[in-house]
Amino acid sequence: MSAHELAEPCPYVSTDDDATDAALLPAEQKLPALLVVDRDGRLYAAVAGSQLIGRLLPSYALADPLFASGSDDWDLHEAPERLTGLTVAELLPRHRVRPPTVGPDASVTHIAALMARTHSPLVAVVESAGDQARLVGAVMATRLMERLIGGT
């Protein structure tokens, strides 16, 4: 089985898109990460759901776990406001993470090893045509686990 056969269509956002709309995408689509393309449509970054959650929390909750553990959730209603007016580019961590990528012919073993080495919940499948690379989809860890354990 190849990456092309395992890949699922994966929605993505552009660096210029609205951060609030982009942050909702993983929740709505049950995605482990948000794939981001640049203005030219090239794969730019992957943002894990945990990183998106971190952007929604007040800074004290991240800085002081003890304080956060004793805190009630009174200010979580402000979470969406933390993204208001931001673009996806502004939402990205300072050190963006490029998702691991494979070509459409990559084997299950290759994908599994890459996913394990990079601790990534997905591997992007890209198809090269000259100097352009087109996002075909992504192999999600859940689909790969089905293949490895379920034998499908």
Rank of each mutant, 00 (worst) to 15 (best):
A19I: 11
G137H: 08
D21V: 12
A61F: 04
H119A: 06
L83Q: 05
Y44V: 02
C10L: 09
T109E: 15
G150V: 07
L114W: 01
S128Q: 12
L92G: 12
T87A: 02
L25K: 02
F67L: 12
W74M: 10
L122A: 06
G70F: 12
M115A: 11
R82L: 01
T87Q: 05
T101V: 15
G130A: 05
D131E: 12
P121N: 07
G41A: 02
E5M: 01
L43I: 12
E78H: 00
R134Y: 12
T152K: 15
A19C: 09
H110S: 10
I111P: 00
D64M: 05
P104Q: 03
T15D: 09
A46W: 14
A68S: 07
P80S: 02
S14P: 04
V139P: 03
M115S: 11
R82G: 00
G49L: 14
E28R: 12
P99W: 15
A63P: 00
L25S: 01
H95N: 14
R117T: 01
P80C: 04
V123G: 04
V36F: 15
G150M: 09
V102I: 05
K30T: 07
T152D: 10
R39Y: 06
L43K: 04
A46Y: 14
R147L: 15
S71E: 13
G41T: 03
T152Q: 14
